[in-house]
Design a protein around this nucleic acid. Structure first.
Length: 729
DNA sequence: TTACGCTTAAACTTG
DNA sequence: TTAAGCGTAA
């Protein structure tokens, strides 16, 4: 058989992985070593050489994007659609299993998925029911606890009672929250995985069935698996079988979300006979960039160990820019991007990567001023927008009346005079009878337990939902969505909104109609778990909305500079990369510096950032930064120091070419009449405070004052120049 | 019931 | 700086 089309352009290690004999195999794939290529070729190899049926293959990823890309690549390579093959995210696959086996999983057929926002809202309600103060029990934190439990395969009953009140309280909240979910037929993200796990664990017949079916399991980004995902894979394969995992322990940056880099190590113990193949040749970056990355990550302990190398040349040194403040940092970066474009570079090839989203604003403003098109990734996603969630809540009630979170969300949206008092009555009734809010509302109306005004309003709401269901039943999904938006009054409400966002919200609602249309035309009924004979498109669409929160909505067409967090940049590459805000407290983040484990994760994040760069890398930090409206004088990030000096070049240290190049522009113009010889960025010595750097100068003559940062004397101080006896260094 | 002004606190983020 | 929660007034 001619297999050259699978193997031709692979190196020896890649080839070894693709052609490995069936059995547990661990591929440790460094950054830029051709990981996705190996995964897709392996699938092709299984299908052709090993003669595997598409039905016998399960490929798992973490993101929808990765899943879509893998499916696309395999189909392109084989030049045909591959229907029976399961490619998806852990959550997507778990969902598919639960839809198929909803009875065995003890779920209502139309169970709904809670996203993290829904989860937090529901928890708030539980906390109120328990009379707990939200200040003491912040809902997001409680949600974190519950999610961690689920990630660790722990039901409330599995939690050890250590006698500590906090632990007990958490357990009680978890118990009640779970009861609410059961009652409403609601499943959060963690629950999807846990249920799917229990489904197999508690149903040996099903377990045997799927074990028999999925002879070949492939898992991408294995370093990001958490406990339950790991155990789920183990359960499926029975610790044997053909399990092909790919990962890089140096790129584990989701520890805070429960992922366990140890799983990559454990694999070798738990899967007897597991082989390991290392992909260490990097095809992405210059030698300098790679050396920097290697030196940086070498500061972490307990790595599996690998050394990336490249056949590429040294390339440019890594440029380090010591900015005066965040505005100067942005100006510098944007100026360099401008030069790059001037020299024929594409804007989309330049990426500005930061630790936290709040840093994007200054860059955005500066890019606008420079008339450079840009695109910011992240932020609020389509299906998470308030107006979209409102519309979805109506749809969910249409599909499933007992969905309390949805009921609460829209019972008074738009305002229909059902206030907190009335909703409280409904909640109380629901609690005492152990039913849903919907049932409670019906009951109270029947028994006359509501005052005339409130009764009318509630009746109106119930009738609205019933009418929406009745009148649109059997109609195409987009029509149903359209009806909901109009007849609920949502469109009118947002049209009349006084703030400037109203118009956009209405557009988004229209877009939801389109999205539902796209969904029914493009989605594969089998893949989204719809019965082809009797398709329940509404429910499938609602699940789709929860599972695929709509990453890439909006125009991407124009060639734009790319702005995103380091987390989002994982898996991507750019010829020109700027890592900005490399300052202690920001990156590594102040909340991560205390514990070695967390600090190492920050370092891995820095490693991810460095290895995104193909040709040129800039590292930027600022002497001064406004952060949450306050001034800070951070020192440069330790990660900058951990990169050997011989690989770097300090932009500031260039001989001053004042007048020739505008770069770097003085960020703060000296006030008129400021003392000669005292300007921002100058180093000075003070008799008591020692050495410092001038940050700002203002006023003139007697009144001239200078702000000087003294790192050894507690930071920045304003000094009256006439008295301060500053010595210019 | 709703609207407005004050206080508070603040990563990263797929599903 | 901004967004969300909360108490008070309309």
């Amino acid at each position: 058989m001619d297999v050259s089309w699978i193997l031709d352009d692979l190196n020896a290690a890649q080839r070894a992985a693709v052609t490995a004999p069936l059995g547990p195999l661990r591929v440790l794939a460094g950054a830029g070593s051709g990981k996705t290529r190996v995964l897709t070729r392996r699938i092709a190899w299984l299908l052709t050489v090993e003669n595997a049926s598409p039905w016998s293959i399960l490929a798992v990823t973490f993101t929808n994007k990765a899943a879509a890309e893998m499916r696309g690549r395999v189909e392109k390579m084989l030049d045909q659609p591959i229907g029976g093959l399961w490619i998806g995210t852990f959550h997507g696959i778990a969902h598919r299993l639960l839809r198929q086996h909803w009875q065995e999983a003890r779920l209502p057929r139309a169970f709904q998925i809670l996203d993290s926002d829904d989860q937090t809202r529901l928890l708030k309600r539980v906390l109120r029911g328990l009379n707990l103060d939200e200040k003491k029990w912040p809902p997001p934190q409680v949600a974190g606890f519950i999610n961690r439990c689920k990630d660790e395969i722990q039901r409330p009953a599995d939690l050890a009672d250590d006698g500590k009140p906090v632990q007990r309280q958490y357990r009680q909240i978890y118990t009640l929250y779970q009861q609410e979910c059961e009652r409403g037929g609601l499943v959060d993200f963690g629950e999807l995985l846990l249920r799917a796990y229990e489904l197999w664990r508690d149903h040996p017949d099903l377990q045997a069935h799927y074990r028999e079916r999925f002879q070949h399991v492939l898992v991408d980004e294995f370093q990001d698996t958490n406990t339950i995902q790991y155990q789920w894979v183990r359960l499926l394969s029975g610790g044997r079988g053909d399990v092909f995992i790919v990962g890089d322990d140096d790129q584990c940056v989701y520890g805070w979300r429960g992922s366990k880099v140890e799983n990559l190590q454990r694999f070798a113990d738990d899967f007897p006979g597991a082989q390991t193949i290392r992909l260490e040749q990097n095809y992405r970056s210059t030698h300098n960039i790679l050396k920097a990355a290697n030196a940086l990550i070498a500061h972490n302990a307990g790595r599996l160990g690998k050394n990336l190398w490249t056949a590429d040349g040294d390339g440019e040194p890594i440029q380090i820019y010591d900015a005066f403040n965040e505005v100067d940092e942005a100006r510098f970066v944007v100026e360099r991007v401008r030069q790059w474009v001037e020299q024929g570079g594409q804007r989309r090839d330049a990426a500005i990567l930061y630790r936290s989203n709040a840093q994007s604003r200054v860059f955005e403003e500066t890019l606008i001023a420079a008339a450079l098109p840009y695109r910011i990734y992240g932020g609020l996603r389509f299906f998470e927008r308030a107006e979209i969630k409102d519309a979805l809540a109506y749809l969910r009630l249409v599909a499933h009346r007992d969905d309390d979170p949805s009921f609460e969300r829209v019972v008074n949206t738009p305002p229909r005079a059902i206030g907190e008092r009335t909703v409280d009555l409904l909640r109380e009734a629901a609690r005492s009878r152990g039913g849903s809010l919907w049932q409670a509302a019906l009951g109270l109306l029947a028994s006359g337990g509501l005052s005339g005004r409130a009764a009318n309003a509630v009746r109106g709401f119930l009738n609205l939902i019933e009418a929406l269901d009745r009148d649109s039943h059997g109609q195409p999904l987009p029509e149903r969505v359209e009806q909901v938006i109009t007849r609920s009054g949502l469109r009118a409400m947002y049209e009349q909104a006084r703030d400037d966002k109203g118009e956009m919200r209405v557009e988004n609602l229209e877009e939801l109609v389109n999205a539902s249309g796209d969904f029914i035309t493009h989605a594969d009924p089998v893949v989204v778990g719809v019965d082809p004979d009797e398709p329940d498109w509404l429910n499938a669409f609602l699940a789709h909305a929860a599972l695929e929160s709509g990453q890439g909505q909006g125009a991407a067409g124009e060639d734009s500079v790319q702005l995103m967090t380091l987390h989002m940049a994982k898996g991507l590459e750019f010829p020109l990369v700027f890592l900005v805000g490399l300052e202690e407290g920001l990156f590594p983040h102040s909340r991560s510096t205390a514990e070695a484990r967390q600090l190492e994760e920050e370092r891995r994040l820095a490693y991810v950032g460095v290895t995104r760069a193909q040709r040129q890398l800039y590292l930027c930090h600022a002497e001064r930064r406004n952060w949450y409206g306050r001034e800070n004088y951070p020192s440069p990030s330790r990660f900058v120091r951990e990169i050997p000096a011989e690989l770097t070049h300090d932009v500031r240290a260039q001989p001053k070419r004042r007048g020739k190049t505008p770069l770097p522009a003085p960020p703060v113009a000296a006030a008129p009449g400021a003392p000669v010889g005292l300007q921002p960025r100058q180093r000075v010595r003070h008799p008591q405070f020692g050495e410092g750097v001038v940050l700002e100068v203002e006023g003139a003559g007697y009144h001239a004052r200078a702000k000087v940062n003294f790192p050894t004397a507690g930071g920045a101080k304003w000094l009256v120049v006439a008295y301060a006896k500053l010595e210019v260094l």
